[in-house]
């Protein structure tokens, strides 16, 4: 809806109907497009062209992509996948292990890794999504803990806490190409999920999220749509996990910790639930803020998590719309100024 408003707003500026139609088809607003273009040139502008800042950009895009996938479930069908990091880990470990043991190319492995993640997600969803939402959250958490326990204990296969070194995607020490890859993955995640939200399925998701009884009365089978949604989310989590495996080059069970899920959850909520793009938008400033804090205050480990937690609580109580709602309000305010 807000896309339409913004598209109408910018119609005069671009004056190109076909271009606007293309933007509408991908679900990216003109403002979003501007941000993407800025992100595309950012790695060449000092100080952003330094390697350590490029690393931050990569982590921010990875976190943003995760937040988009996370919001697809939380924001629409109102189910929290509390084992998100573990599903990401399944994708990462599958892809990594295939590359190490069978010599499968990481480029293929990234996509193969998404399959078991989606499968486990599908089974978890099938088991719990006919029950109340809290069962799915807690069960996904248990499954995540079990997966974490498995990766820790199956030392012969995963090398456990010692870490599994995986081949990287590219044969380069520069972070810049990786940034473009993850940016593309983030955009693909966004566009695909936005397409689903725009379809009949998205309508069903929103109906289920808002009022389950009314949705059922309109002939929607909630379990089917919820399981579908959950599986798609896990598919994307596994896919992004593949990138994680072949970017960092080392996998430890740490990556499946609940704290990782909380990070994604906090970003998705601060960004604004039900907006998809909100999480990606706040991920960049957030990662920069937190990395700056972390490098300047090394004697205070965990401070960034306190900030995450406090912001999550404050947003939940006082500003449930998050950044997306703030942005919408700001745009309306600017428009009001112009019309006056």
């Amino acid at each position: 809806m807000e896309n339409n408003a913004q598209a109408a707003l910018s119609d005069g500026a671009t004056g190109n109907g076909r271009f606007t139609a293309l933007l509408n088809a991908t679900g990216i607003s003109p403002t979003g497009l501007t941000m993407i273009i800025i992100l595309l040139v950012l790695p060449f502008i000092p100080p952003f062209n330094q390697e350590h800042i490029l690393r931050w950009l990569v982590s921010a895009a990875l976190l943003g992509a995760q937040a988009i996938a996370f919001d697809f479930t939380t924001g629409y069908i109102n189910v929290v996948n509390f084992g998100f990091a573990a599903f990401l880990g399944v994708g990462a470990y599958t892809s990594g292990l295939l590359a190490v043991n069978l010599g499968l190319s990481p480029w293929v492995g990234i996509f193969v890794g998404a399959i078991p993640a989606a499968l486990i997600g599908f089974l978890t969803g099938l088991l719990t999504l006919r029950l109340r939402g809290i069962f799915a959250a807690v069960m996904a958490w248990f499954v995540g803990l079990a997966l974490l326990g498995l990766t820790r204990n199956l030392v012969d296969l995963t090398r456990g806490p010692m870490g599994l070194s995986t081949p990287t995607l590219l044969n380069t020490s520069s972070n810049r190409p990786y940034f473009y890859i993850i940016l593309a993955m983030m955009l693909i995640t966004y566009i695909v999920l936005r397409k689903i939200i725009g379809s009949r399925y998205g309508l069903a998701f929103r109906a289920i999220g808002q009022n389950m009884d009314a949705a059922r009365a309109s002939g929607i089978n909630p379990t089917y749509y919820r399981v579908f949604n959950f599986t798609v989310q896990c598919l994307f989590a596994g896919w992004l996990g593949g990138f994680y495996a072949h970017y960092f080059g080392i996998l430890t069970p740490q990556l499946m910790l609940t704290a990782r899920t909380v990070e994604v959850l906090a970003i998705a909520y601060i960004g604004g639930r039900g907006s998809l793009w909100g999480g990606a938008a706040v991920a960049f400033p957030f990662i920069f803020l937190i990395e700056a804090l972390r490098s300047n205050l090394t004697e205070l480990p965990g401070l960034h998590l306190v900030i995450y937690g406090l912001l999550l609580v404050l947003v939940m109580i006082f500003y449930p719309g998050g950044f997306a709602a703030f942005y919408k309000r700001a745009v309306a305010w600017v428009k009001g100024l112009r019309d006056r």
Partner: peptide
């Protein structure tokens, strides 16, 4: 989710 935030803090 609130309790998640509290726990992290």
């Amino acid at each position: 989710l609130l309790t998640v935030g509290i726990s992290v803090v």
